[in-house]
Nucleic acid binder design. Structure first.
Length: 568
RNA sequence: GCAUCCGUAGUUCAAUGGAUAGAACAAGAGACUUCUAAUCUCUGGAUCUAGGUUCAAUUCCUAGCGGGUGUACCA
């Protein structure tokens, strides 16, 4: 559609130059040409140019300008009709030409904005020895979608996971394990059980000074990397890592690299010494800080008074490691919104250290429940494993009810794919700056704005295509007459620009909403236009149309990290 | 206190400064001997308040009101 807009804009610019003279035209027209937008109603055409801006600059009446320009329009194969409607110039496109352009060149129509530039995107910022809950799900679904969108427009996206395996939370969990050893060590359950142990530990420790002391000495052993606690730490750390890995496999999320706090902490401490010597960090009230007051960012504490490390120690080392290992053009961090100030501070310190490549915190708001804010302490959480099980059960039932003839394996396969799609989609379908109040009943409805709706549309297309047998996607002669066809064509034509917009704003919801719209347009078309029973030429055209719809749906969903099922 | 985000149908969300503010869910009424009814059609329903900028404001600015989050040793 961008190319079509450009063609039309070029001719409009030419007309204005011819009519009003080069000098006036060049003074008033924007360098990029005139900007076309989409009208609200189909009766107003497919593309429109509101002339207000230019009319004002040229001191002309908007209505007269629009009328004059529309009258001077010569011709363009893609444009069937041009009409002035008050201060708007409306363009009606030829369905058949539009379809030819569209179907011929799906891959080339997507602009290569990234040009192979390297962007590292850190997400799945998880803590070992703790649970993986629905908040983490939003993080990984969002991160994967952003990474996919960046790849989709030509960047070399490097998704990485940072694992916090060295904090006090590990000591707390181990304290609990010593008190109450785990009996079920099966690989399926132990990662999950570890999360439960952490919750129990937090509850048991509370304000108990004795317990806190015990946790402290466990932490000391872990940090010294010796003793029994360290052994337990090593073993259980691996349980967590395996557990997270199994979740990522289920969710089909792949990372190019994993970073562990335990690998970075020593380097981080050395770095802090260097930075102290350089004056980038200073001592204050016995702690080591970065004083960022001159940038209105307050103070970032790096080491506590007692010398123990805080978050930035490993984060600074990690940032250096990232830039050293890959020549990054940009470095992104997908972390919950509450860390916004922290990342501003971290980036400010890195800048003082000489790192100039853009670093960006992609913030998203958190997930709450109808019963209130999630909190491990109060036990008011939804764990991913439980959520997935519930979703799967429900989809398995639905699928079985609809396909009595399917094998158990096939039902299970489809239900599982749909579960993953549903859960991811629920997490990315609204913009990142909105709090998601997660209501399981809503999520398991599988109607309306859901992954199931998109999947169902795609499954219907597959079914028709399978019944059609042989067909070609780009036929020389296409014929479209119905308004439902036109609307669908117009919707499909917007894919490249919507992908580009969503990716450049790091906003998967834009793409998700667009794909939903395409599916709606398809279902409207499907309801109104018979495909297989249409006469030959019409049938070929419609097959090509749904074939292209399928390409857009599956490509768009794939970019968001969602696989399309072939039947459901 | 300061910073920051949010405020749109009953609910959850849309709307590059542009034409009549769109969807989904919920509610009510319809459509399956017909390409998958996890679908489609129809009906009601909304911009927090007050100013300002503009030919044009849900959008930008100012001030309120309401809510969330952050703000030196939590992770």
């Amino acid at each position: 559609m961008q190319e079509i807009k450009k063609l039309i804009s070029d001719q409009l610019v030419q007309i204005i130059k011819d009519k009003f003279g080069l000098e006036l035209a060049e003074n008033c027209l924007p360098a990029a040409g005139v900007e076309l937008s989409y009208p609200v109603f189909a009766s107003q055409g497919d593309l429109t140019w509101p002339v207000f801006g230019l009319a004002k600059k040229m001191a002309k009446s908007p209505v007269e300008l629009a009328t004059l320009v529309a009258g001077a329009w010569t011709s363009l194969p893609i444009v069937a009709e041009v009409k002035a409607d008050g201060p708007y110039v409306n363009f009606y496109l030829s369905s058949n030409r539009l379809a030819l352009d569209l179907f011929a060149d799906f891959d080339r129509s997507i602009e290569n904005i990234g040009q192979g530039k390297k962007i590292m995107i850190e997400f799945a910022n998880v803590n070992t020895h703790k649970e993986f809950h629905i908040g983490h799900l939003r993080n990984v679904a969002f991160g994967q979608a952003v990474s996919g969108m960046l790849s989709g427009i030509g960047y070399q996206a490097l998704p990485v996971s940072y694992v916090n395996d060295f904090g006090i939370h590990t000591a707390k969990t181990i304290w609990q394990l010593v008190k109450e050893p785990i009996t079920d060590k099966s690989s399926v359950n132990r990662g999950y059980i570890l999360g439960q142990a952490y919750v129990a530990a937090v509850a048991a420790i509370g304000d108990d000074e004795q317990a806190k002391k015990e946790v402290g000495s466990i932490m000391t052993e872990i940090e010294a990397r010796q003793g029994e606690s360290y052994q337990i730490w090593q073993e259980t750390r691996q349980w967590s890592i395996d557990y997270f890995q199994s979740i990522y496999e289920l969710l089909k999320i792949k990372f190019t690299n994993y970073y562990y706090e335990s690998d970075l902490i020593d380097r981080g401490r050395k770095l802090v010494e260097d930075l102290l010597a350089k004056g980038i960090l200073t001592e204050s009230q016995g702690a080591v800080i970065a004083d960022l007051a001159d940038e209105d960012l307050g103070v970032l504490v790096i080491l506590r008074q007692d010398g123990t490390a805080l978050y930035p120690v490993a984060d600074l080392a990690l940032a250096m490691e990232k830039f050293a290992s890959a020549n990054l053009d940009k470095s992104l961090y997908v972390v919950d919104k509450r860390q916004a100030l922290y990342f501003k501070q971290l980036f400010a310190v890195l800048k003082r250290m000489g790192y100039e490549a853009p670093m960006l915190h992609l913030a998203y708001d958190f997930v709450t429940l109808p019963s209130g804010m999630m909190s491990s302490r109060s036990g008011n959480t939804v764990l991913f494993s439980d959520l997935y099980q519930e979703c799967y059960k429900s989809l398995e039932l639905e699928t079985r009810a609809r396909h009595a003839d399917w094998s158990a394996e096939k039902i299970s396969q489809v239900a599982s794919q749909l579960s993953v799609a549903t859960l991811k989609f629920e997490m990315i379908k609204v913009s990142a700056d909105k709090i998601i109040t997660f209501d399981i009943k809503e999520a398991l409805r599988f109607e309306g704005y859901t992954a199931a709706y998109l999947q169902y549309s795609s499954a219907r297309i597959n079914s028709v295509l399978a019944k059609a047998g042989e067909w070609l996607i780009a036929t020389e002669e296409l014929t479209f007459t119905e308004s439902a066809e036109k609307s669908l064509l117009m919707g499909l034509a917007k894919y490249p620009e919507l992908l580009a917009e969503a990716a450049s704003k790091y906003e998967p919801a834009i793409l998700a909403q667009y794909l939903f719209e395409v599916a709606q347009l398809f279902n409207d078309f499907y309801q109104n236009c018979p495909i297989l029973s249409a006469e030959s030429k019409l049938k070929q055209s419609r097959l090509a149309l749904i074939g292209h719809t399928q390409r857009v749906l599956s490509a768009g969903l794939a970019v968001l990290g969602i696989e399309v099922v072939s039947e459901m």
